[in-house]
Design a protein around this nucleic acid. Structure first.
Lengths: 222, 222
DNA sequence: GCCATCATTATTGTTGACAATTATGTATAC
DNA sequence: GTATACATAATTGTCAACAATAATGATGGC
């Protein structure tokens, strides 16, 4: 059996959180993770540090790591900033686009569609987040790339935390629309489509925003 | 002698970069750092990982860490996103402000002024960055806080990389102006002052933006 | 003299054991 | 019965030795 890399383990945990198998507040003991993934504790430690920087877990000194519970206000901030970053990515993409990149992106959306049709949750989550990261990569903007990765995982956590059904995050149709505008060189339309897309994703969460914030006692009893 | 924490070491290295004692491209060998700070290599490793996530160093597998060299485009992206984040912080600050917080912030600006008058470079750097982080902390927005910390260190690196004189980053006067608008409850004016402030800082870098990008050969010979 | 190949050195990556800290359970006093 | 103090167990934090990898310098062939 191959030993997993730090990134692979981090992705598996991210997926577990996004799929709501790991719920906010759950403890992540180092030894357990080390046994599950068949790696040393030191490597688990690196993974947890990485997940912390992506906002998926919070680590308290001498207490260990738990899955983060984002607040409603945090969620709003994240969507707000994400919107700004996505707009910037589209701007930077202008002029950087060639045919090869376009076909690669359309292929990606095609994969998203296949995953959607076969209702493959794990692939849906990976690909729909991957689309936005790919956009940043195409722009060849290293800083935006890292930031987008961060924002996408944080968005996954929010979706997992504030949604009771686990429907797909964002559909391939809206992604494709953005691509079509980019292909036509219509930056303004692309930006508008992106804004609408994010607005759409956020709106499905808005319903839950005014529910009572769970007290530590209550959600321990759920 | 007390052993330094990870954060303390990271701050010292950050300051060295901001003060241009550590220049972009310089190697950071783990053993050297361990000896300099009198800590184990494992701890240095944590520090380097932290600095990498803040964009101050880049770590290549099996090659080690070097001080990052941000490109001009990266610099523009960072200022662009930072502007959006700062605006958001000010919005979130509305209603969260009480008298205690205000005096604390005015006191901070007073310290900045003292450092400026005595021309204490290290303090100037720490405090002028700290002002913006403090604003985010006052807003009690955890996500924005972390992001602001990240952006401030990245800005320090940019300033160090694209400026030949090491004058102060941003003066206390502009900081105080923002505070005055906040005190008066005039959010619009505060946001405008903040935008002008960032624009001002960025403009001092703009002069150098169109200089030739250094080829690896050339800047090796400098 | 120049280039390729190989040995040496220096540096990073990984691991397991040990120390420090926190949580849990138990007994005792009131 | 409840609460406090203590002992035990579980968990995280730290370190130093070992392995793997890449940079450096030496050697031989052409």
């Amino acid at each position: 059996m191959e030993t997993l890399t730090v990134e692979q383990i981090a992705e598996r945990i991210w997926l577990s959180i996004a799929e709501r198998r790991l719920r906010p507040g759950m403890r992540l003991k180092e030894i357990e993770l080390a046994e599950v993934f068949g790696v040393s504790r030191a490597r688990v430690r690196q993974v947890l540090a990485m997940l912390e920087r992506d906002g998926l877990v919070v680590i308290e000194s001498n207490k260990g790591a738990v899955v983060a519970k984002p607040g409603v206000e945090d969620a709003k901030d994240i969507f707000h900033i994400r919107s700004a970053v996505e707009q910037r990515v589209l701007e930077r993409l202008t002029g950087q686009l060639d045919a090869a990149k376009l076909v690669e992106m359309f292929e990606h959306v095609a994969k998203e569609r296949i995953a959607n049709n076969s209702n493959n949750q794990r692939e849906i989550i990976k690909l729909s987040g991957g689309f936005h990261v790919m956009l940043a990569e195409m722009a060849e903007a290293e800083f935006l790339c890292g930031l987008m990765r961060d924002l996408v995982s944080r968005t996954s956590l929010i979706t997992a935390a504030f949604r009771d059904s686990n429907k797909h995050n964002c559909g391939p149709d809206e992604h494709e629309e953005i691509l079509l505008h980019l292909k036509n060189g219509d930056l303004g339309a692309a930006k508008k489509a992106m804004a609408d897309h994010l607005e759409h994703v956020e709106s499905e969460l808005k319903l839950l925003q005014d529910r009572a914030p769970p007290k530590s006692l209550r959600d321990a009893l759920v």
